[in-house]
Nucleic acid binder design. Structure first.
Length: 445
DNA sequence: GCGATCAGCT
DNA sequence: CACAGCTGATCGC
């Protein structure tokens, strides 16, 4: 989940992937991809009002993101204010300060991010230096080196700061099987099942989000069987996807959903209600795409895991692994790195993660100083088995209000975080409370 | 009635 | 593990 506040230090009058609070005063908006956690405030009345008053404010995104966004009637009011920028095409944007009348030009380039259809990273070049906002991304090792627009001539551009997707930026997620490996694993599983008979069908248990489309198109392409989905009008202008999905339930591959799809499956029905063909019951297996990862030295085991008589989990990831992030940063070598994702209120662990990256991959460790104060809590060389005092964990009886991990241990430099101090965002928002409890924990170390 | 937030679920 | 998102309850306007 993105916890990026919306603004970059170098160009604070631009807002990216956040549209509430301070961002209501931005001179221009950017949307990296069409996932809800990157669209906070995008349809709020306050922003709608701002738009009505400030006619020069626009939202910049890729053509595919524009298409996906405008499919929902709730975002139709943006229609005339969205500027779709072609990917990998540097574009100059003039930003006008409505108060002072001062104007500033900046060049933005969209780079493919490999996260979901239309997803991009934004590269900004302007008077305050070159910065890269990655949005969410999955790029394989070596892909940064192949991006022409990250280079000037033969060498990589000087990048001041990278605002980084840190979802799996932890040595624990050292490797995640490649897109191709995962795809092939799923392909062969699906193939082996649906070729048994025309009554053998596969249900892909996908989350409600864009990002599985390349799975659908590849399965359909390879097997000649279209994928049943609930809705496809968002792909009306994307023939390369549209061709491979269908609303006809008479197909052997389904990715349809229902709020109680579990009940449906137990009754040997698909979430769309299909239960038989010509009176012959269906033989259904479910395949749940989910992230699987392996440590630096651990042997990669199977990409497909059988979890029940007719259920499987299959490896699939929308985000880069630790080693992919390391490769990316090691190639770019920015001066600063800022995390876009601070998982579940973790504080110490984020410091540690970024610390490792800073140490190895970037030019000077200024990044940490610029992070919000929470990240500046010093990481002590040794923290051992710290228990959370009872009054904190019992706070109003709410689980999410308690400190979740009961112990924290950080061994010396170069060591891995074992058990993290993990608190929820609820706690993060109660800053004073959190700071005092973290300080308390550290004082015990 | 709507948005924001949260618990719970998947 | 962590992801992205939905539903339903509650609260305030």
């Amino acid at each position: 989940m993105s916890s990026f506040g919306g603004r970059m230090r170098e160009y604070p009058w631009l807002s990216l992937d956040r549209f509430d609070r301070e961002n209501l005063r931005a001179r221009a908006y950017f949307l990296s991809h069409c996932h809800k956690d990157h669209m906070k405030g995008l349809r709020a009345p306050s922003l709608k009002r701002r738009l009505e008053c400030s006619l020069k404010v626009h939202l910049y995104c890729s053509p595919v993101t524009k298409e996906l966004l405008l499919t929902s009637p709730k975002y139709k009011f943006w229609e005339n204010r969205i500027v779709a920028l072609e990917v990998e095409t540097p574009t100059q944007i003039s930003l006008l300060d409505e108060a002072s009348g001062e104007k500033e030009d900046i060049v933005v380039t969209l780079l493919p991010a490999g996260h979901c259809p239309g997803s991009v990273m934004f590269l900004f070049q302007g008077p305050n230096g070159t910065v890269l906002y990655t949005g969410d991304f999955r790029l394989a090792k070596g892909e940064a080196a192949r991006m022409e627009l990250l280079h000037s001539g033969t060498r990589v551009k000087d990048i001041q700061s990278v605002y980084l997707d840190t979802t799996f930026c932890d040595p624990r997620f050292y490797q995640i099987p490649s897109r191709e490996e995962c795809l092939n694993g799923i392909l062969e599983l699906v193939r082996s099942w649906i070729t048994l008979s025309r009554y053998h069908v596969v249900w892909l248990n996908c989350k409600a989000a864009y990002g599985y489309e390349y799975l659908f198109t590849n399965l359909s392409e390879e097997l000649g069987v279209k994928v049943h989905v609930n809705k496809l009008d968002m792909f009306n202008n994307m023939p390369e996807i549209l061709y491979h999905v269908t609303t006809d339930r008479h197909t052997q591959i389904h990715a349809c959903r229902h709020p109680r799809d579990d009940d449906y499956l137990r009754g040997n029905r698909l979430p769309c209600g299909m239960t038989s063909r010509n009176g012959t019951p269906l033989r259904i297996i479910s395949v749940k795409p989910s992230t699987m990862w392996f440590g630096e030295r651990t042997r990669k085991t199977n990409i497909i895991v059988r979890t029940g008589e007719s259920s499987y989990r299959a490896c699939f990831s929308f985000h880069s692994s630790y080693s992919e992030i390391k490769d990316f940063l090691g190639y770019i070598r920015p001066v600063n790195v800022y995390p876009n994702v601070v998982p579940m209120g973790s504080t110490a662990d984020e410091v540690v993660k970024i610390h490792f990256l800073l140490k190895n991959q970037i030019k000077s460790p200024q990044g940490l100083e610029l992070l919000p104060s929470l990240y500046k809590i010093p990481v002590f060389p040794t923290i051992t088995s710290v228990s959370i005092p009872a009054p904190l964990s019992k706070c109003r009886g709410q689980k999410s209000f308690a400190v979740l991990a009961q112990k924290a241990s950080v061994r010396g430099e170069g060591a891995r975080v074992r058990n993290l101090i993990s608190v929820t965002e609820t706690l993060l928002q109660r800053k004073m409370f959190l700071l005092s409890s973290i300080e308390f924990l550290l004082s015990l170390a």
